[in-house]
């Protein structure tokens, strides 16, 4: 691709999360171009009780989305268990049988399996594959025919632009939602404390390992027995995700790794479009259908305005709507902007 091509103003696909059939329908109704979902097992990175789809729900979701000209992407983005690759192979077959438009894959073993047995099924490279450079993305494109790669949330805007100029794969970036502080797919903090990680079990800081305790010193949140945070009276209770806890370094107690914040890139939308981003992803398959509907509505309007209007401005109503759903009630542009750089 030519480095000096004029900035594209193609409208990127809005890719929204669905943890349930209800969320899928609300995302489609609110204007998602594509929804992504996972099966009810450890083959996807939101392996939570009460979440995700069985075969009948996938079939109904695909029917609902296709009837309205939208796509369904299936997340198959954990790493094959060396003891039993069966669930990953069966998930590939089910995606093909149930009519998913693409699979979102992290494991090279799964990519090879799809290419061998269902070459017609589109492959997207999951963020969990940790491909942070165009060389890495081209590696997967040339060898496994990926059509799109989802970028880890560690790149600056110029790095995103550079990557897009040097790969023939479509690039999908995160637009909104909870923020992984670490590069996705290469974080074993959760398994260090609990034995389960996103790569192996599709969970980070799993609920089964969380314990809340009222103590004279305050409410304590523990993960696998490790004290992640201790809250003063009146402090809001956030979920004790390991990297968002308060710890002591050099005698100072603080959010030593990262404060709880949400990614929100509405302000960067024109630059992302100009860079030639093909899709914008909303995080949150674990969130409620109401979250999905409202966040999707906002992003639908924002993308339409950024793609068509000469002047784009973040509407105060959008910001207010998104703020209600932000983790820790704070927003950040994340690595794209890097105030800490």
């Amino acid at each position: 691709m030519a480095a000096d091509a004029p900035p594209a103003r193609e409208r990127p696909q809005l890719v929204c999360p669905a943890g349930s059939l209800r969320a899928l329908q609300m995302a489609v109704d609110a204007g998602a171009d594509a929804v992504y979902l996972g099966l009810k097992d450890a083959t996807n990175a939101r392996n939570f009780a009460g979440l995700n789809f069985d075969d009948a729900q996938v079939r109904e979701g695909v029917r609902y989305a296709h009837a309205r000209g939208r796509e369904v992407l299936m997340a198959l983005n954990t790493y094959v268990d060396a003891r039993d690759p069966g669930p990953w192979q069966r998930a590939v077959d089910r995606a093909a049988e149930l009519g998913a438009d693409a699979l979102i894959v992290a494991d090279i073993a799964v990519l090879a399996d799809v290419q061998r047995r269902h070459p017609q099924l589109r492959r997207h490279l999951s963020v969990q594959a940790s491909a942070t450079t165009w060389e890495a993305i081209e590696f997967y494109r040339e060898r496994y025919g990926i059509q799109r790669a989802v970028l880890p949330r560690v790149l600056t805007l110029p790095q995103v632009q550079h990557t897009i100029r040097h790969t023939r794969a479509q690039i999908e970036v995160f637009g909104f939602g909870s923020l992984c502080v670490m590069v996705e797919g290469r974080c074993a903090l959760s398994s260090y404390a609990t034995g389960q990680s996103p790569n192996t079990a599709g969970v980070c800081s799993p609920p089964a390992a969380v314990r809340w305790e009222d103590t004279p010193a305050g409410v304590e949140a523990r993960l696998g027995g490790v004290l992640i945070d201790r809250l003063a009276p009146g402090e809001p209770r956030g979920y004790p995700t390991l990297c968002k806890g308060r710890f002591v370094v050099d005698g100072e107690r603080d959010y030593a790794i990262e404060e709880p914040t949400s990614l929100n890139t509405l302000a960067l939308l024109p630059q992302l479009l100009a860079a030639g981003v093909s899709a914008i992803k909303i995080e949150g398959r674990q969130r409620s259908p109401a979250y999905v509907a409202e966040v999707t509505q906002v992003w639908r309007q924002a993308i339409d305005q950024a793609a068509s209007a000469a002047r784009y401005a973040v509407q105060p109503g959008w910001t207010a709507a998104l703020a209600r759903w932000a983790e820790g009630q704070q927003h950040t542009l994340g690595a794209y902007d890097r105030p800490w750089r």
């Binding site: 502080v181 590069v183 290469r186 074993a188 990297c243 030593a256 690595a335 800490w340 750089r341």
Partner: peptide, 17 residues
């Protein structure tokens, strides 16, 4: 165990990366 774009040592010292 993990890698990030952000430098946590610099952050602790309130320095930019």
């Amino acid at each position: 165990l993990a890698f990030s774009a952000r430098c946590f040592t610099a952050r602790h010292h309130r320095l930019k990366k």
